[in-house]
Design a protein around this nucleic acid. Structure first.
Lengths: 248, 248
DNA sequence: TCCTAACTCCGTATGCCTTACGGAAATTGA
DNA sequence: TCAATTTCCGTAAGGCATACGGAGTTAGGA
């Protein structure tokens, strides 16, 4: 029963290779799995994953709620399909240039992807679905560092390092963007609300370094932080560290 | 109305400094805010944030659902209190040793924290609450690198880099752990279910590097990956990169 | 030609969730 | 003593996923 579900979802993930037709009895489907997935992505893009619901997908397609379940087994499987779909959006160009540039492209691609579909960061799957686009991209990522001098084990660890860091940095960046947009409250206004209480509560001189660093950041960024800049800083350090490893 | 809520929650966050008593009319509260927060943490520890509900917190305290709302304004504010509370669990020892050791301690502390309270990774707050323990810890993290030779701006970026990477690595580690526990399905069994479909669907020779690297990782780890080891690898590279920056 | 298996679409129901609202009871300051 | 204030909680509204079963549609086989 569980494993049936796995099979069905894998079939949906690889539907372009496997082809759709099987049983042909019964009424024709009014839409296609592709349309369901695209509609679902549109909903998630607009409202985020918490507000994403099966009903909204159905509404967008002119279907009623329960009909969606004839296309996909359930919400979580649909999300798996959405993930593989958006990962396939980016073109995987042949790698060129030095290692440093190649790795930058790999990281930048992840960064862009998260910003185009912020809900990717809200997906929680204990066991990731293995779809065609995820597979293709992992191969492409490894190809970027093939022959650079890493061991096979290190190759996986390098991609993991880049992915983990980029996800974290993108999370901060998107949180900042969403905050600015939706709450309609700037960092400044936020501080103006917090300040009276915080001043009463933070003993003066208790946070000397935070105060100094916060002031420096505030003046430079004109905001609490600059996620894009932090991303570039971190990425540069990581690339330095990786080239150092190759010079051993 | 919004800003009232902010004030109230800040008051709760800093309750140990501000003290509780205000109006003393009416019946005594049967429990305390501290107990509510501790009960909430227990629920989240056991069941994760998605399954965390106000009702379960109430049940655990012998109260009925709606009474919880006389202690905290709502679910999201309660989560803010929980976060600050668990961040306060770790002792902030004076820093000693070389920069590399200090930074390792900072990262390791985050790593441990995420593993003790995995739901921290599921918290989504666009605007983080500024509580006493969060503030203390940020100051402590900065103190670890004070005087090492970074500019004020870089100091913030260094902590951000470490935090972002550690969060990403911990996320992978916890996903692996939860998967193993709850699904009762080992990586091997998972592959046995997936394999028949994947073999039919992945053209042979299409994933040469992934195949080689995956095999190497599988033999070394006896699993799909080893998150703890990837964490150490990534951390080492980052520390290399940071020391390189200081040698400029 | 006709029947039936298989399929789609969907109404209904169950059991979760947060939180707004208002009432009864308890407590204390005036 | 009594009114203001606060706690605890019942109820209800409005959201969610999804199990189940029924009505109608289609194609293949008898």
């Amino acid at each position: 029963m569980e494993s049936q579900n796995v099979d069905r979802t894998l079939g949906l993930l690889w539907r372009r290779i496997l082809g759709t037709p099987q049983g042909t009895r019964g009424p024709k489907q009014r839409v296609s799995v592709d349309e369901v997935v695209r509609a679902a992505i549109a909903v998630a893009d607009e409202e985020g994953l918490p507000a994403f619901s099966m009903r909204k997908v159905a509404d967008r397609l002119g279907l009623k709620l329960m009909s969606i379940y004839t296309y996909v087994p359930g919400r979580s499987e649909l999300i798996g399909l959405m993930v593989d779909e958006v990962i396939g959006e980016q073109e995987l160009r042949p790698h060129e240039g030095a290692l440093r540039e190649r790795l930058t492209v790999v990281a930048q691609q992840l960064w862009d992807e998260y910003h185009r579909h912020p809900w990717l960061l809200q997906v929680e799957e204990s066991r990731p679905w293995i779809g065609p686009n995820v597979s293709d991209r992992y191969e492409w990522q490894l190809a970027a560092i093939e022959g650079a001098g890493f061991t096979d084990l290190e190759m996986d660890q390098v991609i993991t390092l880049l992915s983990d860091f980029t996800a974290g940095a993108a999370r901060a960046s998107i949180a900042a963007r969403r905050t600015a947009e939706q709450s309609g409250m700037s960092d400044l206004e936020w501080w103006e609300i917090n300040a009276p209480v915080l001043e009463r509560v933070m003993p003066p001189g208790r946070y000397p370094i935070s105060g100094r660093v916060g002031t420096a950041a505030g003046q430079e960024y004109n905001a609490v932080g600059d996620p894009a800049r932090s991303f570039r800083f971190g990425l540069d350090r990581i690339l330095d560290g990786l080239t150092a490893l190759l010079d051993r």
